[in-house]
Design a protein around this nucleic acid. Structure first.
Lengths: 208, 208
DNA sequence: GGTATCGTTGACTCGCCAGTCAACGACTAC
DNA sequence: GTAGTCGTTGACTGGCGAGTCAACGATACC
C-alpha cells in the first residue's frame, strides 16, 4: 500500500532523528547542544525536527521513556517468576549492564540527563523512576516473606542500595573511573549482586 | 582597625550572597534561577554579585569546594586512625548524613547540581569527587590488608558502592522518597554500614 | 572640609538558541 | 495533467538572562 510506504518512510525519519539526538546528547550533553546539532547529525533540515517532535524536551522524553519501559517490563517479568532473589537481582543487573554494553549512548543519556539530573528531567520523570524502585522493592519484599533475605532492612532501602550500586557503576564507566573491558563488565554483574546480597542474605555465605 | 572593619563587612557581604545563593539554588535549581534571584534573596543589587564573584558558575564552585574540602579532610583524618573499618565507614557516613541534617540546602545543592550533574559541574569537579572515592578506597584497601574485609572486591568498587549508597539515600531524602524523621536518619547511618559491610566482611556476622 | 578609595547600584547590551512559518517540491489520486 | 496532501526546507524572530559599566555615595585618611 502506498500510504503505508509513506508512513513507513516517516517513521524511519523519526527514528533517524531520535538516533541522531541520542548521539548528540551523549557527546555534548542535552543542555550544551543545540537543536541544529541534532538536525545536522541526522542530515535533515532544522525545521523537520519540529515536524516530528514538539520540542527539544520531547525528544529526550521519548528516548528515556522508550528504554525505561523496557526496564520496567523486564523487572516485572523477573519479579513474577519464582527464582531465588539472588537470581532475580542478577537478571536485573545483567539487563541494565547489557543495555549499556549494547547501546552505551542511550544509557549514558538516560543516566546523565534524566536519572541523575534531579532538577530537570529527573524531576519530570520521578514517578517513572520511582516505579522501578518500587518493583525492585517488591522483589525484595517477596524474598523477605519467604525468609530468603533478612527482614530488618526495609525493601525500599534495599532497592535504593541495589539500584544505586548499579547506577554508580554505570556512572563509573561513563566517566572512565572504572575499567570497561568485557571481562570487567561481566564480573561487575556478579560483584553488584554479591555485594548487595551478602549484605542482605539471612546468613553470610562466604568464607574467603 | 578601620580597614579591618571594612574588610570584615566585605567578607560578611560575600557570605550573605553565598548563603542566599545556596537557598535559591536549592529552591529553584542552578539553571532555573537567575542571578537576579540570588541578588534579591540576599537583598543586594544585581551588580554586587559580580563584585564578589566573577560569574554565576563561580558561586556554585565556591559552595561546592568549601564543603567538599571538609569532607576530604574528614575522610583523610578517619583513614589515618586505626579504628576497625566498620567504624571508619560509619564515621564517614555519619559525617555526610549529619551535614545533610544540619544544612540540607547546601548538601542538596552539592548533590543535585554537582555530584550528580555529570555533564555540567560534575564534569568540572570530577577530580575532586574522585579524590573522595580514592580516600574511601584507601580505607577499604588497608582493611583488606589487615584481613578485616574480603579481598575479592576491589577497593575501587567497594568505595563506589559505599559512596553510592550514601548518595542514593540523600537523594531519597531530597526528593521525599524516604522518610526524614530524626530516628530514620540516625538508623540510616547504621543501615548503610550494615548493608555494605556485611557484603564486604570476611564472614557474614548476622543471624536474624 | 576635601579628596581618594571602594563598596554599591540597576539600567542596559548583546549573544544565543528554541521555536515559527511561509514556501517549496515530491508523491498520490483521479 | 491537474489538484491536493504532506514531508521538507532554513531564514527569521522573540525572549531571556548573563555579564557590563558608568555613576553614585559612604567611609577612611589627611
Amino acid at each position: 500500500m502506498a500510504s503505508t510506504a509513506r508512513t513507513q518512510a516517516a517513521a524511519d525519519k523519526r527514528r533517524l532523528i531520535l538516533d541522531a539526538a541520542v548521539k548528540v546528547f551523549a557527546r555534548q550533553g542535552f543542555h550544551a547542544c543545540r537543536v541544529s546539532d541534532v538536525a545536522d547529525e541526522a542530515g535533515v533540515a532544522y525545521g523537520l525536527v519540529y515536524h516530528y517532535f514538539s520540542s527539544k524536551d520531547e525528544i529526550l522524553d521519548t528516548v528515556f521513556l522508550e528504554r525505561w519501559e523496557l526496564l520496567l517490563k523486564l523487572i516485572a517479568e523477573v519479579d513474577s517468576g519464582d527464582a531465588p532473589a539472588r537470581d532475580k537481582l542478577r537478571s536485573i543487573a545483567s539487563f541494565i549492564i547489557d543495555s549499556y554494553d549494547n547501546d552505551p549512548d542511550v544509557m549514558k543519556v538516560i543516566i546523565v540527563e534524566v536519572t541523575r539530573a534531579a532538577n530537570s528531567f529527573g524531576r519530570t520523570h520521578l514517578p517513572k523512576i520511582r516505579e522501578a524502585y518500587q518493583l525492585i522493592a517488591d522483589v525484595v519484599a517477596k524474598a523477605q516473606e519467604r525468609g530468603e533475605l533478612r527482614a530488618d532492612v526495609t525493601p525500599d532501602f534495599a532497592a535504593l542500595a541495589f539500584y544505586g550500586a548499579i547506577e554508580q557503576v554505570l556512572t563509573g564507566w561513563i566517566f572512565a573511573l572504572l575499567p570497561q573491558s568485557p571481562e570487567y563488565m561481566e564480573a561487575a554483574k556478579e560483584q553488584i549482586v554479591d555485594t548487595i546480597c551478602d549484605g542482605l542474605d539471612v546468613i553470610g555465605l562466604r568464607a574467603t
